[in-house]
């Protein structure tokens, strides 16, 4: 083996070692959570790196609690509603911003950008008053309303970027045929925008599913909570006696659907994230 070949081999080995390191770093915490969730509570406090047997008692424990099942239901309800509202308002707004030139367009874009920069805490007291005034305190509908503050600007921004890329000839043909703007959106653009809507919808879904501060503040009783709050508030006798088995089981339960979604749609997610940031 020549010195040159040896150098090449070491470089290759080093590169693969680096990849393995990155993989372990990215995956291990989740893997460890899965392992912990599948241990009986008697073995919880011995450190293992793999499992000898499967024990589902932690999962049985959380699913036999009505409040956790209820929280999953609330999270699904809230996330799907938020996505539907954001896409509906987003597609019409992005048509206006992406396809029509009018005075005040730049101002509207600036306002949207400004809202997406808001720290959530800055609107907390004012939004609390609005939600209580509408009678939506301690109600998933209050969360659906409040979540539009972070899903809507993002959705409009990304959909506008996509809307602009569509060829102008399409629209001209529709206008020549005398189509109204509403018909143009639903018949011409909507069929072409499905991929973009799937991407933004997915990102909005993940954001809504993961939200914590509003959910913690605007709900009070166990039956109205979403999953992140339910997990954060699982408690034992004291700070030092947290029931880690059930906490990990709940964590894995709410994360697996997201991980599966990300695996399936990773290309879309990447294009959505980069469209939102790089082009924004």
């Amino acid at each position: 083996m020549t010195a040159r070949e040896f150098k090449k081999l070491t470089l290759r080995l080093g590169f693969w070692l680096l990849i393995v390191l990155v993989l372990i770093y990215a995956i291990f915490p989740f893997y460890y959570a899965v392992i912990t969730s599948l241990k009986p509570s008697s073995e919880l406090f011995t450190v293992n790196f793999w499992l000898d047997s499967l024990d589902f008692s932690n999962y049985v424990a959380i699913f036999s609690q009505g409040s956790f099942v209820r929280a999953i239901f609330n999270s699904i309800l809230v996330s799907f509603s938020v996505v539907a509202i954001a896409l509906l308002l987003g597609i019409t707004a992005s048509y206006a911003l992406g396809r029509v030139r009018f005075r005040g367009r730049t101002t509207v874009m600036l306002v949207i950008l400004g809202v997406s920069m808001f720290p959530q805490v800055a609107v907390l007291s004012g939004l609390f008053e609005v939600i209580r005034g509408l009678g939506l305190y301690n109600n998933p509908a209050g969360l659906i309303l409040s979540y539009t503050i972070f899903t809507l600007p993002f959705t409009v921004w990304v959909l506008t970027t996509f809307m602009k890329q569509l060829p102008q000839e399409l629209e001209e043909a529709a206008i020549m045929d005398g189509a109204t703007p509403w018909v143009t959106i639903t018949r011409v653009f909507l069929p072409l925008m499905w991929p973009a809507m799937a991407t933004t919808g997915l990102l909005a879904f993940i954001a809504a599913w993961n939200e914590f501060l509003f959910a913690l503040t605007f709900t009070l009783s166990d039956s109205q909570r979403t999953v992140p709050v339910a997990i954060a508030l699982i408690s034992g006798g004291s700070q030092h006696e947290l029931p880690w088995g059930p906490i990990m089981a709940a964590s894995v339960t709410v994360t697996v659907p997201l991980v599966v979604l990300v695996m399936i749609f990773q290309k879309r997610i990447v294009s959505g994230l980069t469209a939102g940031a790089v082009k924004g």
Binding site: I19, L23, A26, P29, I206, F212, V227, S251, T255, V262
Partner: peptide
């Protein structure tokens, strides 16, 4: 590998904090 690297991003902040 790219899909695996995305996993931490997909995990809810609350869950990653608990993990």
């Amino acid at each position: 590998v790219r899909a695996a690297v995305l996993i931490p991003w997909a995990i809810p902040t609350i869950v990653s904090a608990k993990m």
